[in-house]
């Protein structure tokens, strides 16, 4: 069954929320509410709420990254000090902990930040090719709802969108 993609643009955010709510409630055959993608010019935590609870995994990357960074730093630094011919420095131990902790701390952050960004790219699916159903308006002032559904559902989508004062509906065949 071929899937169809439909992008509707809304000016009024309340209408867009209402449209999503209706799509969810309509229980359309061949359409999964999870396939609905919202495109908006600004962050919309309140709009995203209607899409249901979608978990975010970036924090795990952060955790692992930060720990890895810290461990790497400590072992790199301490091993280097211990192996670099044991050069004695000004009455200090060969592996002095306080300075090593400073570096551990820095690398902890560096690791955290880097891996977080990496996690962000992975989780957000970036970089990516833009989908063909994209309007420059969604980066300006309109909210877009991209739905994917069976051919049969297209008409229902259109009805709902039109009802909620969609400014424009773009259509394209799925892959």
């Amino acid at each position: 069954m071929s899937q169809r993609h439909l992008l509707a643009l809304f000016n009024d955010f309340d209408e867009a929320v209402a449209a999503i709510a209706e799509l969810r409630g309509a229980n359309i055959k061949g359409f999964d509410i999870d396939d609905l993608i919202l495109k908006s010019p600004i962050e919309h935590p309140e709009v995203e709420k209607v899409l249901g609870d979608k978990p975010v995994n970036v924090q795990w990357f952060t955790l692992i990254g930060a720990c890895m960074g810290g461990l790497l730093a400590f072992f790199l630094v301490a091993s280097a000090q211990a192996n670099f011919f044991s050069q004695i420095k000004g009455g200090k131990p060969i592996v002095p902990l306080p300075p090593d902790f400073v570096l551990t701390y820095e690398m902890f952050i560096l690791g955290g930040v880097f891996i977080t960004i990496l996690g962000f790219l992975i989780c957000a699916g970036l970089p990516a090719k833009r989908s063909p159903l994209y309007s420059a308006k969604v980066s300006e002032d309109q909210i877009g709802i991209l739905v994917q559904g069976d051919e049969s559902a297209v008409a229902i989508f259109k009805t709902i969108f039109t009802k909620h004062k969609a400014l424009e509906i773009q259509e394209e065949a799925g892959k």
């Binding site: 709009v47 975010v56 960004i117």
Partner: peptide
């Protein structure tokens, strides 16, 4: 990077931005 402002992007973006902000302060 092909940003489209999708909800998935925004969601991860928000957390990422917040996390890095948290890291940046210390």
């Amino acid at each position: 990077l092909g940003w489209e402002g999708t909800d998935r992007q925004w969601r991860n973006f928000r957390i990422t931005y917040l996390t890095i902000a948290c890291f940046l302060i210390p």
